Simulated scan of single mutants.
Amino acid sequence: MTHESLEKNIEISAVRLIKLAEERSWNKISHHMTFIISDCNEFKGENFGEIRKSRWKINRYKIPQPLDQVIGVLKNEYEDLYDVNLYVFKALRKETVIEIQYYRKSNLNPDYFEKIKDNQPMFHSKITLPGYALDGAKFDINRESGGGPRHYWNLFLYEFKYRRMMKKMEK
């Protein structure tokens, strides 16, 4: 990958993400995409749950922009990009807001940095699955940004089943 193909790689990853979201969630996913960009160091927390909450609090105030505007930020950081992850931040009827989250090489352990300093950035399209969707069940893609009653009901049922299963295993 080169500096020039950065935008193309983001576009390909975004299309993959939309496809993945359509397959796994019950939401209607718009193909009109806008983007927000995040440096992974923006988010604070001791565990995944705290980091997720921090991420949501920070990202909800960001103004979604077209791809060509966020590409400028990534091009400025290109030499230091290690990993670029795309997530669905929010799926609305008329647009899907995609978060582009990047990790810097310079933030890595110095020994590991020496191994990867000349590597090209990696690109990933990701969705986080709630526990109840691990078996292939569809879920609310917007659950991290508010969710809805159906998500909370499925979460309640999952917790109930999980606790029953754990009690059976203890016997």
Rank of each mutant, 00 (worst) to 15 (best):
N27D: 06
V73Y: 06
K44A: 02
N41E: 03
N119L: 05
E42N: 05
L134P: 00
I58V: 12
Y158R: 10
S145W: 01
C40A: 10
F48Y: 13
H124V: 03
K90A: 02
E95Q: 15
M33R: 11
F156V: 11
N109P: 03
I58F: 15
I98F: 06
P149G: 03
L86F: 14
G72Y: 00
F160S: 09
T34L: 12
N47Y: 11
T2A: 05
K138Q: 09
Y78I: 09
K28V: 08
M169K: 15
F89W: 15
I10F: 09
R60P: 00
A14E: 05
S38I: 00
M169V: 15
M33G: 00
W56P: 00
E4W: 03
D39G: 10
V70L: 06
L74W: 01
R104L: 15
K62H: 02
G146E: 03
K117N: 11
A14F: 05
F89N: 13
N76H: 00
E99V: 04
A137Q: 14
G148N: 14
E50V: 07
V73M: 04
R52A: 12
F35H: 09
H31Q: 14
L134Q: 09
K90D: 03
S54M: 10
K19V: 12
L134V: 12
S125M: 01
H32R: 14
L92R: 13
D111A: 14
F89S: 07
N76W: 03
Y158M: 05
I10A: 08
G72D: 08
R150E: 15
Y82P: 08
D140Y: 01
V97S: 00
G147V: 09
V73E: 04
E144V: 00
K115E: 14
R55Q: 10
H32S: 15
Y102C: 07
Q65G: 00
Y162G: 01
Y132T: 08
K117S: 12
L74I: 05
E11L: 12
K115W: 01
R143T: 01
N107C: 08
K105P: 02
P149Y: 07
Q69S: 11
K62V: 01
D68T: 12
S38P: 01
D68M: 12
D83F: 10
A133P: 03
K171M: 13
V15D: 13
I37F: 01
K167M: 08
P149N: 10
Y158C: 09
G72H: 11
T2H: 07
M1D: 11
L155C: 00
P121I: 10
R52T: 08
A91T: 05
G148T: 04
K105V: 01
R104I: 07
I141Q: 08
K105Q: 06
H151Y: 14
I12T: 14
N119I: 00
